[in-house]
């Protein structure tokens, strides 16, 4: 495995007194696409929240060689940890282009901005066509593209994508998965959090399986696909 970008060790987190995550270990290497799968309520989104510093956590959390735990969400973001949140969370009454600009809100380099716009429009030609439309008026797939484009505008090192496929037609999901490989080839690392195990495994290099707040399986996609427990629980075979 290549150089580690995100290192999570013995991480516990929860909401107030209610613990949700227990001793989670997970690493993401630079340039990888890592899938984090598990059913509803397994703690995947909570883990993302802990990583992006929205909720308190204990344990080890390192990103790009720096300790993330003492940082507020804004600081984690500024270091290149960018989230595509569940449910898209677009600025619905702003145009696609304005949404993309908001992704680059904290960026200082003007020239790099135009380059990022071009790159996003190249990845998602649909967004270019619709750049003057209100984001809230688009289809679910287009909204997901807009959310991913917005995240890319922030020049991420690690993209945390939460439930990308939720509520989308399979053909749209396939398109988005293809884009993920393109994104990776441009040097962006991806942690893909999914309930759709088929979709996630089709592009990922490695995977983690979570259940009730614990990591219960990990390995290369081939290993996970041959793991009887994973097969039975998630792949229906």
């Amino acid at each position: 495995m290549s150089e580690t970008l995100l290192r999570i060790e013995k991480l516990s987190a929860g909401y107030g007194p209610v613990p949700v995550l227990f001793d989670v270990d997970l690493t993401v290497g630079r340039g990888e696409i890592v899938a984090l799968v598990g059913s509803n309520g397994a703690g995947k989104t909570t883990l993302l929240r802990a990583v992006s510093r929205v909720i308190k956590a204990e344990g080890t959390l390192e990103f790009d060689g720096a300790d993330l735990l003492p940082l507020p969400p804004e600081a984690a973001f500024m270091r290149g940890l960018v989230q595509v949140p569940e449910g898209r969370q677009l600025f619905g009454k702003m145009t696609v282009e304005e949404n993309l600009r908001m992704g680059a809100f904290r960026r200082k380099d003007k020239s790099g901005l135009n380059e990022s716009f071009e790159r996003v429009y190249e990845l998602f030609p649909r967004l270019k066509e619709r750049r003057r439309q209100l984001a809230g008026n688009m289809s679910g797939g287009e909204q997901q593209m807009c959310a991913m484009g917005r995240a890319l505008m922030a020049a991420p090192k690690l993209l945390l994508i939460d439930e990308m496929s939720l509520g989308l037609a399979p053909v749209v999901v396939d398109q988005l998965l293809e884009v993920l490989t393109d994104i990776r080839s441009q040097g962006v690392t991806v942690l893909l959090v999914e309930q759709d195990v088929f979709a996630a495994f089709s592009v990922a290099d490695r995977g983690y399986v979570m259940e009730t707040g614990r990591v219960v399986g990990e390995g290369s996609i081939a290993e996970l696909q041959n793991d009887p427990a994973v097969r039975e629980a998630y792949l229906g075979a």
Partner: peptide, 8 residues
């Protein structure tokens, strides 16, 4: 939520 995610 989204505004905070993007550094506001």
């Amino acid at each position: 939520i989204a505004a905070r995610l993007y550094g506001v």
